[in-house]
């Protein structure tokens, strides 16, 4: 019984308590690679702890009381159909099956998201084959459209796409910096952590960890790509390129904005901050590695 409570509290910490302070922590933007890892670690921790908590809860079902179920509800777990549906029939559900459901939920989501992203990319490539012009001098495909945009299509048929509008507003130097940013996304396979956080938030909707991890990961991978571009380009170049692309767009009203991150990125590009101290980095790395393992120790120790 104690084990279940400890594991549930642990899952609650990872899923609902730690995410808010982590997304506010200032070191995260100074070391984006480490931060992406930390978020991934936290998600694994949540899944492992929840899985073990559910396992022990089902084993000691007779002793389970409303408080624990309430705790799981807080974590956004019981709201889900799979787990929620399993609760009333705990007595005839074997513990391993219930525990496996907690793991399978995000894994199945991930597979579905990956498949849908793959299909969407193929469809996009078809359109690109029709209206895009290859520009080998930039290593990119050019689309004849007035709105400035630069993006990459990751995966098997990786491609960087630039619109005519972006070519118009960017200088040669700025364009090279932006293309370097996009190539960094492709080389670093930044779509994978984004896909995984998306799948995770679909598996555990309403969970604070899911929301924060998705938002922060999207921003952090942009920062990683910015940093890569800054290795070979001036800060001013990338910053002005960012503004040139933004200003060249005429945003239509009442459309969702995702631009808050751009301001944070710009500030970071223009006023570089030192990396966190070595000790901090090692500490975060150690915490990321051990956090998912601790619940296993707790579960095995009882």
């Amino acid at each position: 019984m104690i084990t279940t409570v400890v594991l549930a509290v642990y899952a609650f910490l990872a899923g609902a308590v730690v995410p808010a302070p982590l997304s506010r922590a200032r070191w995260t933007h100074r070391s984006p690679v480490l931060s992406v890892l930390a978020w991934q670690g936290l998600m694994v921790t949540f899944v492992v702890a929840t899985m073990l908590a559910v396992y022990h809860l089902v084993l000691t079902e007779q002793h389970a009381h409303a408080g624990l179920v309430g705790l799981l509800t807080l974590c956004g777990l019981a709201a889900d159909a799979t787990v929620g549906g399993a609760v009333p029939t705990l007595s005839d559900t074997p513990a391993p099956v219930a525990a496996a459901a907690v793991v399978l939920l995000p894994v199945v989501r991930l597979a579905r998201c990956a498949w849908r992203a793959h299909r969407a990319r193929l469809r996009h490539l078809d359109l690109l084959a029709l209206v895009g012009e290859p520009a080998p001098e930039h290593g990119a495909t050019v689309v004849d459209h007035h709105v400035p945009a630069v993006y990459c299509l990751p995966g098997r048929y990786r491609r960087v796409v630039v619109t005519r509008g972006a070519l118009d507003v960017l200088s040669e130097e700025q364009l090279r910096a932006v293309l370097e940013h996009e190539r960094a996304h492709l080389r670093g396979r930044h779509h994978l952590p984004r896909l995984w956080t998306d799948a995770f938030s679909r598996a555990f909707p309403g969970l604070p960890l899911a929301r924060h991890a998705e938002e922060q990961t999207a921003l952090l991978v942009e920062m990683i790509a910015d940093d890569r571009a800054l290795r070979s380009h001036a800060r001013e170049t990338l910053a002005t390129a960012m503004y040139a692309v933004a200003a060249g767009r005429v945003p239509r009203a009442a459309l969702g904005a995702g631009g808050a991150g751009a301001l944070i990125r710009l500030g970071r590009i223009l006023a570089p901050q030192p990396r966190p101290r070595r000790l901090t980095r090692l500490g975060v790395l150690a915490a990321t590695a051990t956090a998912p393992l601790l619940p296993l120790l707790v579960a095995c120790g009882h």
Partner: peptide, 27 residues
Amino acid sequence: LMREALGGNPDPAGTLVSFLERMTPEE
């Protein structure tokens, strides 16, 4: 093509990765 690229929130995330997300005039 541009609707997908400028859509701001590609579905699922990571389908394509934009240099700059959609922004409001204020931003």
